[in-house]
Write a protein that binds this DNA or RNA. Structure first.
Lengths: 328, 328
DNA sequence: TTGTATGCGTTATCAA
DNA sequence: TTGATAACGCATACAA
């Protein structure tokens, strides 16, 4: 008998009917089965190495214990720790993650979403939504590190507003008064919220928008910023990768960090401390963001009618060598 | 009618039997259906927004178009690009990836493996196997960046042997003759193969083994190496993270890189170029390793009897500031 | 507390 | 070329 054992095999071995075995195996219904019967069934299951066929179970219960996780690109260093947190959070409830990358392509996101839905995914964790996204209300969904403007979808994010204010305050305390901002894309909540916070905190207009949260886009946007606003002594970058683009752009203009211009990032990605100079940035709790988003999703799956929580996790200023007082 | 349409709904709308609709919808069986019937069915499916219920299909066909991907820890920077390549490779065939992390824990690996199997996974891509692992022959499996000693399991790896030889040759050409090796764990094929290649290439005995492929383990093993073998002018590290541990250990002894000791890594992880000094290392084609492993798995799923290919991808020496000629 | 019967949606087999 | 029917493995409403 090489074939995979079914619940029928377990039932036969335990001398009960398949229905009883099913009840004994399932913790929720175990209560309605005689204790001795339960042990017999459990022993039989163990002896046979029984594992329930999830396809059959899904077909019957319309749940799969699988969540879809859709992100732009795993190679962006913010995502690995977040995804890791998600996976650990899902595992607490016996869930697993189906992973997909979109490269920011909205059609691909749609495709992936549909394909995962076809695979009976119980819910979604999305790191890809634009601020104006309309998400189908039919399936439990949580946004991670992103929000929609309406706030109708539950989300887990870092405190972008507080982070930017911390960074700006530290620059002001160092004596900077001409501060620029290389913002992330407007259509992403992270880019937008940090931009709003920067304008609120500084009242400054010296802002350019990078086309993406990448080093290349940061490089390009920094050059535009330098051309448009003279005499800046500090640049607040929309995230760490953009900040690295700032480094390169400043170097290309013969400016050094932090002697000529201070630079700050956002996220504290791995290796931010190894840059030259080390990057002053805002540390967000990557792993916990993932973990909380998984838990939030599980809660939504358990009770889809629950209000759409928006969890905002605290951030921390990490001061390194990329910021200093401006030259007199 | 808000409910999800089934094949029965499609069949009714097209005026055919469900079995016929199934044949028309499935490309493999489409040939046995009248062309006009096919178009009618396809139109009906489109009109209803029909998507097959994969649980029902899996139950019937015993396939799922899902592959399990099990790695030690996504936060290790080698894995994101590999996983990304895997995902893209799987997608070419309409497959998706179920992702799991083990933290190197063999029990957890077993658990994940079983849990994924229970979810009707069609095959596995494992980055976790030890050299002596016995893998169940019952389900198609491919190893990525790892091999077992017997070679009975198909695998996709970088050319560890050639990489180490390139590194050693370049050090020798720089004039080094007292070269040490901080190897990765013996029980992993990457650690073992690079160690063997080092010994073959140098004939040297100056080796210590790190407990893991991490910076901390590299730090600790480097201190042991320095204590055991005096006068080393170069250290070949088992991978980049270990090399960063070397940097730290050398610094703690007041030695500078590359003036006192040259250091090399392996993998060329993102940001290896940003270290201080930039790390001379072997670049492995992370993404392609993932891509090829996905394709290999798909081939094995299509034909499980096919011979167990072992694909070895070429590597490249990347010279940066961490290597130089020894002091006279 | 346990057994019986049924159906989830799909596809494979068999017959027409 | 199509239709009828059964079966994949499980969980539940109902009966005992």
């Amino acid at each position: 008998m090489d074939k995979v054992p079914t619940i029928k095999d377990v039932a036969d071995r335990a001398g009960v009917h398949a229905a009883t075995a099913s009840r004994a195996l399932n913790t929720a219904t175990r209560g309605m089965v005689n204790t001795r019967t339960v042990t017999r069934v459990l022993e039989a299951a163990k002896a046979l190495g029984y594992a329930p066929n999830s396809a059959a179970r899904s077909l019957r219960t319309r749940t799969s214990s699988v969540a879809g996780v859709i992100i732009p690109d795993l190679r962006n260093p913010v995502f690995p720790p977040i995804v890791r947190g998600i996976e650990d959070g899902l595992r607490e409830a016996g869930y697993m993650a189906l992973l997909g990358n979109t490269d920011g392509d909205i059609d691909r996101e749609r495709e992936l979403f549909d394909a995962m839905r076809g695979r009976q995914t119980d819910g979604f964790i999305l790191a890809t939504s634009r601020r104006d996204d309309e998400l189908p209300a039919t399936v439990p969904t949580v946004l991670v590190n992103r929000r929609t403007d309406t706030g109708a979808v539950p989300s887990v994010t870092a405190d972008n507003d507080a982070g930017v204010r911390m960074v700006v305050r530290s620059l002001v305390e160092l004596g900077h008064s001409r501060i620029g901002h290389v913002a992330g894309p407007r259509h992403l909540s992270t880019g937008w919220e940090r931009y709003r916070a920067f304008v609120d905190a500084t009242g400054a207009e010296s802002v350019t928008f990078a086309a993406a949260f990448t080093e290349e886009a940061g490089f390009e946007a920094t050059l535009r910023l330098l051309d448009a606003y003279e005499g800046l002594t500090a640049i607040v970058a929309g995230n760490d990768l953009i900040a690295l683009g700032c480094y390169a752009a400043l170097a290309s203009r013969g400016l050094s960090v932090p002697e000529d211009v201070s630079v700050t990032g956002f996220n504290d990605i791995p290796f931010a401390d190894r840059q030259r100079p080390g990057l002053t940035t805002i540390r967000i709790p990557h792993y916990d963001i993932g973990l909380e988003s998984a838990r939030l999703l599980l809660a939504r799956i358990a009770n889809p009618a629950a209000p759409a929580k928006r969890i905002v996790l605290p951030v921390e200023l990490i001061t390194r060598g990329s910021t200093a007082s401006p030259k007199p």
